[in-house]
């Protein structure tokens, strides 16, 4: 194919741009393990309250950090106030008891879908103590815009 010179220059540049993007994603994604929440674990959505994994939604602290067990339900999150320590890894384990919800901690990269029948799980560190807004970011019915919760990141006790 006869490609005009200037367009050929641009096509090489465009290829280089694409490779630079892919390289950045690979370096941080595979090298630095920065990946989207992609946990594969299923649960019966009609039995969430009885399931031992979700029967006691709460924050469990341990020496290394904390584990948050929570679920979304039209139109709120349980627990509605989540307290976690700053500067330590926090693992979230969540699901939905009815329709698909979203879970976004505003101002952070903690963002996942809560799909009924599946357990969403990810780990992150909150460096900045303070109060964060948690919102549902997937339409779940007429009360969607009311569905929110609070995350309180506390300075670790000395």
């Amino acid at each position: 194919m006869n490609v005009p010179l200037y367009e050929k220059i641009w096509m090489w540049a465009a290829g280089a741009i694409i490779i630079a993007f892919i390289a950045m994603v690979l370096v941080t994604g595979v090298g630095g393990a920065l990946q989207p929440p992609s946990h594969v674990e299923t649960i019966d959505p009609t039995q969430v309250f009885k399931d031992p994994r979700f029967a006691h939604p709460a924050v469990t602290l341990d020496t290394n950090g904390a584990t948050v067990v929570a679920f979304g339900m039209m139109f709120g999150f349980t627990p509605a106030v989540i307290r976690v320590p700053a500067g330590k890894p926090v693992t979230f384990r969540m699901t939905s008891t009815d329709v698909t919800h979203g879970f976004l901690i505003v101002g952070t990269n903690a963002n996942t879908m809560l799909v009924p029948g599946y357990v969403s799980q990810f780990t992150t560190v909150f460096r900045q103590p303070g109060e964060y807004l948690i919102v549902c970011n997937e339409y779940c019915g007429l009360g969607h815009h009311l569905m929110s919760a609070k995350l309180i990141v506390e300075q670790a006790a000395p």
């Binding site: 367009e7 641009w10 096509m11 465009a14 290829g15 741009i17 694409i18 993007f21 892919i22 994603v25 994604g29 595979v30 990946q35 989207p36 929440p37 992609s38 946990h39 594969v40 674990e41 299923t42 979203g102 963002n111 996942t112 879908m113 809560l114 799909v115 599946y118 357990v119 969403s120 799980q121």
Partner: peptide
């Protein structure tokens, strides 16, 4: 951001998605 899909397959789709920038750049 979905649960239930392994990260490796999401990464594969992500790389192909960058490929599709090319015809629009052209």
């Amino acid at each position: 951001m979905d649960p239930g899909i392994p990260a490796s397959w999401k990464l594969f789709h992500a790389i192909l998605t960058f490929g599709i920038l090319f015809p629009s750049f052209v």
